[in-house]
């Protein structure tokens, strides 16, 4: 596998993982209504990204798995998110969740950046189209989680 294919594989996995994480978080936080619904909506973006990545990869004879090995990978990713986000005791669960989602989206965003740069350097129009189509939505996932943290943190941290 060449390095660009490795990025595709990583990104494919990252988008599927973010989809799963968003859906799981939406399920865990049904009573946080806005979060619940928008998490479900934005999970759809990640699912679509994974589909488009897989289609692009298949055209290059790189066959990505239709889905992830859920248990193992979720564990791995949870571990990664935990490592990245030191959690003070008693941080409200919703804020922890938003932090983990934000970091997962950041990871995907950086991989999209790599892919776009590689595509430009390698004059690979197809890959550039893929990144141009998907990366803006990843950035929107980032802004969304950031906005929710900014909006909810004051009440959840000072008034409870």
């Amino acid at each position: 596998m060449n390095p660009v294919e490795a990025v595709l594989r990583t990104l494919h996995d990252g988008e599927l993982a973010l989809r799963d994480d968003l859906l799981a978080a939406a399920g865990d936080h049904r009573a946080e209504h806005e979060f619940h619904h928008v998490a479900t909506d934005t999970a759809r973006w990640s699912a679509e990204h994974a589909r488009l990545i897989a289609a692009t990869a298949a055209a290059r004879d790189l066959h990505l798995p239709a889905d992830r090995d859920p248990a193992a990978l979720t564990r791995l990713r949870r571990k990664a998110a935990e490592d990245l986000a030191p959690r003070p005791d008693g941080l409200p669960d919703l804020l922890e969740t938003l932090t983990a989602l934000h970091l997962a989206a950041t990871r995907n965003s950086l991989h999209w950046e790599m892919l776009a740069q590689a595509a430009q350097a390698g004059r690979d129009g197809e890959l550039l189209d893929l990144a141009s189509r998907c990366h803006p939505q990843t950035l929107r996932q980032l802004r969304w989680t950031n906005t929710l943290i900014k909006t909810l943190a004051p009440q959840l941290l000072t008034a409870s």
């Binding site: 909506d41 802004r143 950031n146 906005t147 900014k150």
Partner: peptide, 8 residues
């Protein structure tokens, strides 16, 4: 705001 997510 973002018309889908409401993000600022």
């Amino acid at each position: 705001r973002d018309l889908v997510t409401g993000a600022s």
